[in-house]
Design a protein around this nucleic acid. Structure first.
Lengths: 333, 333
DNA sequence: CCGGATTTCTACAACGATTGACATCGCTTG
DNA sequence: CAAGCGATGTCAATCGTTGTAGAAATCCGG
């Protein structure tokens, strides 16, 4: 049924070892033999058995990507980019939805799928920094998102403080003075870090920061953004701008503003973070921080594979993803 | 480094096979032995090696899901649902992005990842029906999307003709008479089938169908929808309603309408297909056909696992996914 | 206390690919 | 001509788990 190495060897008239040598690019092989073997491989449509290979070599060429949820556009786009980047290098990505459950995250961290995967790219949401720091993973791990101080893992992320500073400063530059922030309480550290940049920008512009304008919400989805925006509109003195810590929150906020009959950016300007496709097509289109997702994917995979290959004696890597501020209609009607 | 079965056996003072028996729920084991073994497993934090198990058993408990692109919201939501459904049964899903390339689809079909995966759920976009019919896959395969006549695979999908009929009839029922269709040329058969339902509804209502109102476009994304809508608006006699064959097309169309300063549904009513989250939050929110994705996921996985388990002598299964028409602002302002 | 049935457990051989130690064999080369 | 090298083959062991077959332990009625 299944073709195996010995079948190929038989057909090519060589030994099993030689076929294996061809496949694994052993240096000393005549082009003739190589050709014969490759012909046989093609003829029989031979595919090495991944299980057997991985069992013997201890390498599977599979990596895992653990994200909170793949139905969330940012993570979907990220997952797509990472899959592509990995495929380019002959690596397969296994996507793990943690659904923000600490249990699932822990499982991913130490379970590691029965030694199948060679390493993991982890975008935590629940797991506390300390826990991650302690986790003694057998396999290489690259961390996405906010940095966890004291962690000893490689790390790839945008400079959230600076990006948030830029986003807020942009709102100030178009004349807004009462600027709210939505999402200050969410994500593993994300809320805290982005708030830092937000406050810094207010301070730099000589604006007081009003605690009533900082909304935590319960999550990072459209409905959380919509709910937070409703709270803001209910204030005695509503804001004239909102910086939402991700695009989904912003889209939810826009919905609430539309329902309230307010004009964007006329009455309230809105900025998001992530640059997901929905935001580009929304009317009004969404001004947002746009991290270079291809760069992120490429480098996260690169760093992980370096580590797997054992070029890991080197220090912990800490890469900063380039980003731009995409100014669109929601601040520039 | 890695704990293996023999380590557990040594610690529990039994044979390797006995440990294996405990793990695999072999019937005849004393509760004493079982307890000892389980204690040892817990103490050593033993995790079976997936590769070895799969090599020996010929089963990996991995299935693949091949979709055109995971960054597309519908597929992202579907992938999330299928992953969850599989996880509930202890199965891991490997997601394959074919990016609509025939080559990639073929690869998925016969490559089958070196015998690792036990079966595949395939949502084709390029691969011609005939090809699929011929593909002699070694592993069980469940097909999503439009049915391919003559295929010998299990199949799970909504009744697109009926759903499209309903969508179009809804537009007629709110008084529209000049109803366009966007997406008639796309997807592996999708465009054709949905157009069928669309035309059927027009006919049932005694309306002529105008070929100028049927736009093929080049794809199924927002920009395709936006472009098609621009074409429609440029007509001497533009439509008063549009049925878009998926939600992304509809969202693109809405964007064009907003740019043109037209009101929805006042000037033009819009219906989509898929019920992705973006559509629910858009303003105006999008009327759409809402397939029960949980049902779809649950059943696609179920059928595939039945087949893998060998309960497959039975005839080809052909399941129809329940759907509802979600009436929202884009037709009911 | 025995013979046989049953339960509980163990030794051994696979699964398919890789790798290392050697053995060949045919050429080149000093 | 012997040594050296390149290109392949032989053989056996190994990765961790599980199916097969059978051994050992236990139980039963008589």
């Amino acid at each position: 049924m299944t073709t195996r190495l010995s079948d190929v060897a038989a057909r090519a008239g060589v030994s099993v070892k030689t076929v294996s040598n061809v496949i694994n690019d052993y240096p000393h092989i005549t082009s003739q033999t190589r050709a014969k073997v490759e012909a046989a491989i093609a003829a029989l449509d031979y595919k090495p058995n991944v299980s057997a290979r991985s069992l013997r070599k201890g390498r599977s060429d599979f990596i895992a990507l653990a994200i909170p949820e793949m139905a969330s556009p940012y993570f979907a786009e990220l997952g797509a980019a990472i899959s592509r980047a990995a495929k380019r290098r002959g690596i397969t990505v296994l996507i793990d939805q943690t659904e923000g459950e600490a249990a699932a995250e822990k499982l991913v961290l130490d379970g590691m799928r029965g030694q199948l995967i060679d390493g993991i790219i982890f975008s935590p949401i629940t797991t506390a920094p300390a826990k991650i720091g302690l986790a003694d993973t057998a396999k290489p791990l690259v961390l996405l998102g906010e940095r966890h101080p004291g962690g000893h893992f490689d790390h790839v992320a945008v400079d959230s403080v600076q990006a948030s500073f830029d986003a807020t400063t942009h709102l100030i530059s178009i004349g807004r003075r009462r600027i709210a922030a939505i999402g200050v309480g969410g994500g593993a550290g994300t809320g805290t870090v982005r708030r830092k940049g937000y406050r810094k920008a207010l301070k730099a512009a000589g604006l007081e920061h009003d605690p009533a304008l900082e909304l935590a919400g319960t999550g990072y989805h459209r409905d959380d953004g919509a709910a937070s925006m409703r709270e803001l509109l209910a204030l005695p003195e509503p804001p004239d701008a909102v910086f939402c810590f991700n695009d989904l929150l912003a889209l939810g906020a826009l919905r609430t503003l539309a329902d309230a009959g307010l004009s964007v950016p006329g009455d309230v300007a809105v900025v998001g973070f992530d640059d997901i496709e929905d935001g580009r097509y929304h009317s009004p289109s969404l001004t947002t921080i746009s991290p270079d997702k291809e760069w992120l994917a490429e480098n996260a995979v690169g760093v992980l594979l370096d580590r797997i290959a054992g070029n890991g004696a080197a220090d912990r890597r800490d890469l900063t993803v380039p980003y731009t501020l995409q100014i669109r209609e929601s601040t520039n009607g």
